[in-house]
Design a protein around this nucleic acid. Structure first.
Length: 666
RNA sequence: GGGCGAGUAGCUCAAUUGGAUAGAGCACCGGCCUUCUAAGCCGGGGGUUGUGGGUUCGAUCCCCGCCUCGCCUACCA
């Protein structure tokens, strides 16, 4: 409702400016005033025009208000402060519209035109160790953004890129081959053994990877040099394929990848397609990209300076005089003819936009209750769904990768794909680090230098961090204890309690990862993450449960109440000082699509998290002040029930967009 | 050296992207359970928004200088 009214006001203002001053403004910002005494919507447009029209803002505002007349849905307009144009809504109409909004989905961008096809890539954990809290932030941000795009009516493919031939996988393979001295058969045996015992392969690799990383530095200088050589020899065998080393890499990376999918499924996170580095290499994506890059002049062969013999590209924003040597250029093809990571990434991104002229093979890999997740293959199965060829892409990758991401975008732009470059979003976010206190708590030895820092970066290489499954287990144990203590659902609700504890635990975790804006570093601490009070997921879920209890006890459904609400006149209950706090709740409820649009245009899910919290807060406030079931005036009771119904509907819907379930009881 | 980000209440973070009196949570202090569940509600103290200038009707936000911190910047992947 809010978004609709905002657009309506902006359109009318545009019309007034056109007819009265012959002015055409690009955008007419409409804001929500800081206090309800200023109305529900406000336009500071008069300030902007003051200089142009050489009049006082206040005078301009008065002229505009006079010309505005009356607008459907608004009770009136007035000038306040130094020249704000404040609009008051017709509260009765506003409440009725809000109550009418579909109980489940409202398609925000139903406007006109075809449905946008977007591709979101997230998670992308190297398949050589267990997922940790940093990966959780990535996956939760990505998954939530997918939900937001889908809520707005977009068609979205979810991809999880797998670097199964990189140095990280090579390191763990070195561990199996040379530290543990295992053959392919023995690795296979180990995997079977772990499976039988119900142990997690990714945990096993976590330790082995950290051990191997240490091993590279543990020996004498000569030994270390030899070990590094082994490392790169292993890497090249994996890249090349068709040998035992590559076979071990395939076994391990596939087993670990399955574990990652299981971990993420605990958080209700699913994928459609898993493109792998190995197929990008074997299907020769690079060769196709290289031709295009050379033909468009994005890449040039350097004949002088430190990059002599390499194919390089200019960095974005670099200013180099014509004909001068650009020593700072980015190397894409090394002098030994091998391709850098950015080079392969350019090829991959051409594929994402359907510009490469090549495609993956596809095989089914992981089955979800309602769909299949496919994986890339050199020779795929038929038939298969088609991925790639998207109009817009979002890469959920931490901010440390902003440089290579910018290079890829620059390359696309240079090749003439400017529209695609504009629709390429590096959805960047800051890392999750540990507070020194948390690191000590976990038993890591922490240097004095690190103890003085606000946070310490996690490191898979050092085996330093909190594993995702450990955190989830811990959260569920804590919520289960709380649920048991409260005897949630009655004394013999044993079976349901585990389910509820899981819903609350996941709600707490997802909310925790979403409440911070993307470019704020999360300094992780168990105390904060295990908190269920205040600005947390469980606080919001609790509000839902409270609302549901009202309807349970009243013996009526929210839908039935909203149907009854149509028949009463709520005007008397929406006006006057006593009604302000209730009207505030209605207004908040009416803001969902406005917030959704904001989240999508800024790629910032945190706004919706904040919205959910504020809505819950205002509902709790309302819950306390107005006792519904004892209300004697039947019309007023219907009005109060309708208020609760709208709040409940919005809470459940917004939580679902955040990937958080709404438990039946708490 | 260059690039990006950050610096806001004791702590952790917001601030509708330049708007009206800078707000939440935690922590601390004090109240509220015979009521639709206290994972809750109400009240209280807490601020020179790192710093110095500039731009304008208006700056936490934009520009310049300085200070502090983090990350990126290799023909490694």
């Amino acid at each position: 409702m809010y978004l609709e009214m905002q657009n309506r006001l902006a359109e009318h203002l545009r019309g007034v400016l056109r007819s009265k001053y012959d002015l055409e403004l690009q955008s007419i910002p409409i804001e929500i005033p800081p206090d309800l005494k200023f109305g529900e919507l406000s336009a500071p447009v008069a300030f902007e025009l003051a200089r142009k029209l050489r009049k006082e803002p206040k005078v301009i505002a008065q002229e505009i208000v006079a010309a505005l007349g009356s607008i459907d849905g608004f009770a009136g307009f007035e000038v306040a402060g130094a020249g704000y144009i404040n609009g008051r809504l017709d509260r009765t109409a506003g409440a009725r519209n809000t109550a009418l909004e579909s109980y489940f989905y409202i398609r925000l961008l139903e406007k006109s035109g075809p449905v946008q096809h977007s591709l979101v890539e997230h998670t992308s954990i190297n398949p050589n160790k267990a997922a940790h809290i940093g990966h959780l932030r990535n996956a939760i941000l990505g998954d939530t953004f997918v939900r937001l795009l889908r809520a707005a009516g977009q068609r979205v493919d979810v991809q999880n890129y797998i670097d199964n031939t990189g140095v990280q996988v090579a390191d763990v393979v070195v561990g199996f081959l040379y530290l543990e001295g295992r053959s392919v058969a023995q690795v296979r045996q180990l995997l079977d053994g772990l499976k039988r015992k119900g142990e997690r392969v990714d945990y096993y690799c976590w330790d082995l990877y950290a051990g191997t990383s240490q091993w590279y530095e543990q020996g004498s200088e000569d030994e270390n040099a030899a070990r590094k050589k082994l490392r790169y020899a292993t890497l090249h065998e994996i890249e090349h394929g068709g040998n035992e080393t590559a076979e071990i890499a395939e076994l391990i990376s596939t087993a670990v990848l399955k574990r990652h999918l299981e971990t993420m499924l605990r958080l209700d996170i699913e994928y459609d397609f898993l493109p792998r580095e190995s197929e990008i290499l074997r299907l020769k994506f690079w060769d196709a990209a290289f031709e295009q890059l050379k033909n468009t002049g994005v890449l040039y062969f350097e004949t002088e300076g430190k990059n002599k013999g390499c194919w390089v590209m200019r960095r974005p924003g670099a200013e180099v005089a014509e004909g001068a040597l650009d020593e700072d250029a980015k190397v894409i093809v090394r002098s030994n003819n091998t391709v850098t990571y950015v080079g392969k990434d350019i090829a991959y991104h051409l594929w994402k936009f359907g510009l490469l002229g090549k495609d993956f093979g596809y095989k089914p890999f992981f089955t979800y209750p309602d769909h299949e997740c496919w994986i890339s293959a050199e020779h795929g199965d038929e038939p298969h769904p088609h991925f790639g060829g998207a109009q817009a892409i979002y890469n959920v990758i931490d901010s440390r990768q902003s440089d290579p991401q910018a290079n890829v975008i620059q390359a696309l732009r240079g090749m003439g794909y400017t529209e695609q470059a504009d629709r390429y979003t590096h959805f960047s976010y800051e890392m999750v680090a540990l507070t020194p206190r948390c690191a000590v708590e976990l038993g890591y030895s922490v240097s004095d230098e690190d103890l003085a820092r606000p946070y310490i970066e996690v490191s898979g290489r050092k085996g330093f961090g909190v594993k995702a499954d450990d955190l989830i287990d811990k959260l569920i144990a804590a919520t289960r204890a709380e649920v048991d203590a409260r005897q949630t659902g009655g004394a013999d609700a044993e079976a349901g309690r585990q389910r509820i504890a899981e819903q609350i635990a996941i709600g707490a975790l997802r909310y925790f990862m979403l409440k911070f804006t993307r470019n704020s570093v999360i300094a992780f601490d168990f105390k904060d993450a295990l908190s269920f009070e205040g600005e947390t997921g469980p606080y919001i879920q609790y509000a839902v449960v409270r609302a549901r209890n009202i309807f349970r006890k009243a013996g009526i459904t929210p839908e039935a109440v909203l149907a009854e609400f149509k028949a009463i006149d709520p005007t008397a209950y929406l006006e006057g000082p006593a009604a302000e706090d209730i009207w505030v709740l209605w207004l908040r409820a009416a803001r969902r699509t406005l917030v959704l649009e904001q989240c999508i245009s800024t790629s910032e899910p945190a706004y919706l998290a904040k919205h959910a919290f504020q809505l819950a807060q205002e509902f709790n406030n309302f819950y306390h002040k107005h006792h519904i079931l004892t209300e004697e005036d039947p019309a007023r009771k219907t009005f109060l029930l309708a208020t609760a119904a709208v709040a409940l509907r919005e809470l459940v819907e917004v939580l679902s967009w955040l990937g958080i379930e709404s438990p039946e009881a708490m």
